[in-house]
Design a protein around this nucleic acid. Sequence first.
DNA 1: CTGAATATTTGACATCCTGAACCTTTCAGG
DNA 2: CCTGAAAGGTTCAGGATGTCAAATATTCAG
Lengths: 148, 148
Amino acid sequence: MESIQEQTDEEQLTRDVVELMAGLVAIFHREYEEAAQARSLTGAQAKVLALLRFGPLPMRRIAQTLSCEPSNITGIVDRLETRGFVTRQADPQDRRVKLVAATEAGRTASAELRSSLHFAREPLATLSQEERRTLRDLLNRMLLGAEG
Amino acid sequence: MESIQEQTDEEQLTRDVVELMAGLVAIFHREYEEAAQARSLTGAQAKVLALLRFGPLPMRRIAQTLSCEPSNITGIVDRLETRGFVTRQADPQDRRVKLVAATEAGRTASAELRSSLHFAREPLATLSQEERRTLRDLLNRMLLGAEG
DNA sequence: CTGAATATTTGACATCCTGAACCTTTCAGG
DNA sequence: CCTGAAAGGTTCAGGATGTCAAATATTCAG
């Protein structure tokens, strides 16, 4: 059985972690947006391009992954297609489906953005390798708990 | 001196952590947006309202904190004002400045959103109190390194 | 073959965001 | 006391993101 003091402490601890997360989220978000803009991509466009890293995807799959309406993806893919980062091809299996695939230019832009994120990652530089491992394991457990 | 294998491992570790962060950022972002929408606020409106928690702020200060143009804040505050969550008052010290203050309704909505975030925080529930403490300390060091 | 369901697009509309132009107020120098 | 530069906000034009409802094309069950 926990004392009231312990419950309060635990609550405060959770609040602190949430607060810190919010700070990290803000920093990551800003850096991602800047890195995208440096390649004349918007954040949304960069996210879609990143999803196509492992192969073509149907519009609907993209919308589901990004938790938004499919009609929204239509516009984003339109603009990516205009810029030559992406192509639409019909799915031979099901002609209702359009498969979106990254072009060579699209893959390159996305890969560059990705690696620029790795190396510009100041916050992580503060931690030792051992600490990074600990952080990785904790985050891993959090994410598995959240998505299961 | 590090071997090539160690460098590669360390690089992979960093990549892993960045990947996990990106996942967390996505989850946090989605949950924040949903929590805001549940109170008929947009994400941007909720962010501005959250800034006013400790007192009125000039438009320009809000823009700086959110890293966006002041003209953008004008529109967001307009809509918050229409909904009765916020008021604009002239600064007696400098009549160029408009101080934005949350109304009672605004404070309530923001506080509710905030606490709903704490308790809906599934990912954290996975971790023991000891692990949360470790996580807090690691995040703390990362953030201090990033902002200093 | 018919009708329900699915994948995508289109159009209308609100919001977010930037950049340039504008107004008011402040403030430094002559 | 002027004058002009600088600063805080707003307005306007325009692009991007996002939702929702309606339309189109295709698939699939019966």
